[in-house]
Design a protein around this nucleic acid. Structure first.
Lengths: 333, 333
DNA sequence: CTGTTAGCGCTTTCAC
DNA sequence: GTGAAAGCGCTAACAG
């Protein structure tokens, strides 16, 4: 199926390619009749422009690469929905890649995108990412890059995130205000900035309420179910087990809750869970985690997309922006 | 940041662009020293080819469009993961669009993809899609297209799906074998082929077990939560309410279950639910829907991607394939 | 108002 | 083995 080109249109109309081009893009300096003729023939022949050629000419692809750890995590699929909505309306397309929290894969994805030619990139970093050379490479190439959620604040790129420290503080304080003092932290890996911020919020809250920090209540995990299960058992095996667990996210809360239930504990009575995510399906649970932090992923994605669009518009006088989306603590019970 | 081009490499090496091109792609008829020199300089200058130019030349973009109703539905995010895995390894990139079960949007998405230039398209149709003109257009343009899950069997495109009728039959039979006879069907819209197939499976099972079909037990919905709620109430308001509900998918089961619970019914005792999807988070429920049909979305996506890759390889002698992925009824209780 | 011309960056005959 | 040249489809000065 040989696509019909402007050359063909020009030939049939006995005119030149440039005239056809101008007519098609409603250039002012073009005769009315000619414009109409061209338009008519184009429609008749079902002409559609070759975007690749335009891309080559314009040095842009109207493609934006998006790299997230897991599409299957609700947080990310909602964020991508926000990204897609903004980008689509601005004429961009989303090229998607998952890093699966694996450094190698993330690097591969970024390289593929650069090689493939995208006008910009939006990234939420994987938990396994221990260095930033791929991002530096993107910056070196002058491709606009925006981070969201799992960001790198030390890089000169704009980023969108929630104040994890503050949100963590509020979550832990909620528990403290309930009179609970033995609160455990079931965290992500130390390598993740957001794990450290959770820790800070946790520490701050305890400090403010003059509860002594007990290191045995602090566990890090690699975010896997197995590790969550293991560390939860460790916590519940303690001589004085925690009354509440502040977990990395709802997925972790849910897995930890299963363990607690198996061990005969009653949720929201013997033990309380709070975490990030505010997963929608928790509403179907008889006993949902006590509270959760809503991070508004759709809005975060949309904001990141908007920042990227700005950056792509004016690659020269690019101003780094750091946008903090205010999270909200949702008490479920 | 002006990217470095082959022209630049050629200039610096005092050779021609064509030689550089050949050296870079390990053309046989090229001097060893020259090849090494070119390679070395390319590495040094961090040369990377302009994919758009290659695309224009090769008349292909290595981009594949994927259109699904909702990214946030686990079924689709898993399918896309399968698609992405296969496509990435074959050197293709996934361009993602969501139709949100809206015909206009689906049409827009398909058009944007065609215009944008993709080598192929994978689609799972939206529930609101009432005609196929956009697919016909894709076919007319000779762009390979493969359907999965929500397919159009009457079109000449390959497709991958589960045997909904058979799976529905098994699901309903499971209930019948439990001695339940008053079974309702909470279906999707009539416009969806897969709704009709569910209905057929339902009818077949009842017939085989010589249970008379009672039309008041059959409800269609537009898949929205509101409509699900409404129709569930209608069913439970009946003089003789159903003992079991076969719902479109787990999301619908869950919403319907909420209503049943609110009305004081005990799940898996007073009323049983079965549906499609086998959502992973149901494992966290005290009382999950009684059974669910696992459709192996990852495998479906992967298979669809493989079919598309084949179709893109040999656009001429294209053979339509219809692949049926065997589903599995998972009894949860 | 319209045609000519020169590319965008790369591949690929066709010569030498 | 290497270079010159054409061309993928389109845009945009530059001349009329």
């Amino acid at each position: 199926m040989s696509q019909i080109t402007m050359k063909e249109l020009a030939k049939r109309l006995g005119t030149s390619v440039s005239t056809v081009s101008r007519a098609l893009q409603n250039h002012p300096r073009i005769g009315l009749k000619m414009r109409e003729d061209v338009m008519a023939l184009a429609k008749e022949l079902n002409y559609s422009p070759n975007t690749t050629a335009i891309n080559l000419k314009k040095q842009s692809t109207k493609n934006v690469g998006v790299v997230v750890p897991w599409l299957t995590e609700q947080f990310f699929s909602m964020a991508i929905t926000g990204i897609e909505d903004i980008l689509f309306e601005k004429g961009y397309r989303v090229v998607l890649q998952q890093s699966r929290d694996d450094f190698e894969r993330e690097e591969q994805a970024i390289q593929a995108l650069m090689k493939h030619g995208v006008d910009g990139i939006i990234v939420s970093m994987g938990s396994g990412t221990y260095n930033h050379r791929h991002f530096l490479e993107v910056n070196r190439k002058g491709i606009p890059l925006v981070f969201f959620d799992r960001v790198v604040k030390s890089l000169p790129n704009s980023c969108v995130y929630t104040d994890i420290t503050q949100a963590s503080f509020e979550a832990v304080e909620l528990l403290l205000n309930k009179g609970l003092t033995k609160i455990a932290l079931l965290n992500g890996p130390n390598t993740m900035q957001s794990s450290n911020e959770r820790l800070m919020g946790y520490v701050n809250a305890l400090k403010l309420h003059q509860i002594e920090l007990n290191p045995i209540y602090i566990k890090t995990t690699d975010l896997s179910v197995e590790d969550t299960v293991k560390k939860t058992h460790e916590l519940l095996d303690l001589a004085v087990p925690p009354q509440a667990i502040f977990a990395f996210h709802d997925y972790m809360s849910l897995d930890a809750m299963q363990i607690a239930k198996e061990r005969g504990l009653i949720i929201n009575q013997d033990i309380f869970f709070v975490s990030f995510s505010n997963l929608s399906f928790c509403k179907y649970l008889e006993k949902p985690p006590f509270a959760s932090i809503e991070q508004f992923p759709y809005e975060m994605g949309a904001k990141a997309a908007n920042l990227l669009v700005d950056a792509m518009k004016k690659p020269d006088d690019y101003v780094r922006e750091e946008v903090i989306i205010r999270s909200k603590l949702i008490v479920r019970v």
